[in-house]
Design a protein around this nucleic acid. Structure first.
Length: 211
DNA sequence: AACTCGGGGCA
DNA sequence: TGCCCAGAGTT
């Protein structure tokens, strides 16, 4: 079965497993999505989501975050303040949005990647989920799942991006991301994948070859 | 494209 | 405690 042929089957199976596919990635604004994605880097989701609740209640947009004292931000997110840089980064990002982008989140990769703490993966998340652009954010979950199922032919994220882009279900970039991400996080885990509860073993090259 | 970096989950 | 992981930044 080719990767493209697997897509409809994946979609059906994952739709049942993850009935509200957009819930976790749905933030009110592009700004909150951007900040939440920066926050998510190298952190666990549960903790990040809790912190974001508080963070966004204090500063829901670029204007208020830029005006918030750095120490307040530091204190709010301190349990995931990776390298002690994250607070500084999101503070700086909000100020740059104000001074260089009229208070909005830019919609090109070049502009996004110029922001501190924003790399290719975060940029792609924003492009796909806030602006609906047909790009794929390939993190380690998506890479691993794609390799195991057989949706891509290399372990190089940059090449995997292009192979996945070619088979994105039309109009469903966000869902596609979400399925692959959650599946990798909760079922197709790096250490001990839980094939017993996996909804897509019938499409999975690795499962079939190891069976 | 490969390497570095070092907090946090988990065994 | 020690191994492994996550992605941005660097080379």
């Amino acid at each position: 079965m080719t990767p493209a042929e697997k897509i409809p089957l994946l979609h059906v199976a994952f739709s049942m497993k993850f009935p509200s596919p957009k819930s976790e990635l749905r933030y009110d604004t592009p700004f909150q999505l951007l900040i939440a994605t920066i926050m998510a880097a190298q952190s666990t989701d549960r903790k990040v989501n809790e912190i974001n609740q508080t963070l966004f209640s204090i500063c829901p947009d670029a204007v208020s975050m830029a005006a918030t004292d750095l120490n307040t931000i530091r204190d709010t997110i301190k349990s995931i303040n990776y390298y002690n840089n994250k607070a500084k980064n999101i503070h700086t990002v909000s100020k740059i949005l104000l001074t260089e982008h009229g208070g909005t989140v830019p919609s090109t990769r070049e502009e996004l990647e110029r922001l501190p703490g924003v790399g290719r993966k975060t940029a792609n998340v924003v492009l796909a989920n806030a602006f609906g652009q047909p790009v794929m954010a390939v993190d380690t979950h998506v890479q691993r799942v794609s390799n195991r199922i057989g949706l891509c032919s290399t372990t190089t994220p940059r090449e995997t991006e292009d192979e996945l882009i070619a088979i994105i279900p039309p109009g469903q970039v966000a869902d596609f991301h979400h399925y692959l991400l959650l599946h990798g996080r909760y079922t197709c885990k790096a250490r001990k994948p839980e094939c017993e509860t996996c909804p897509v073993t019938h499409v999975c090259d690795t499962y079939k070859s190891e069976k």
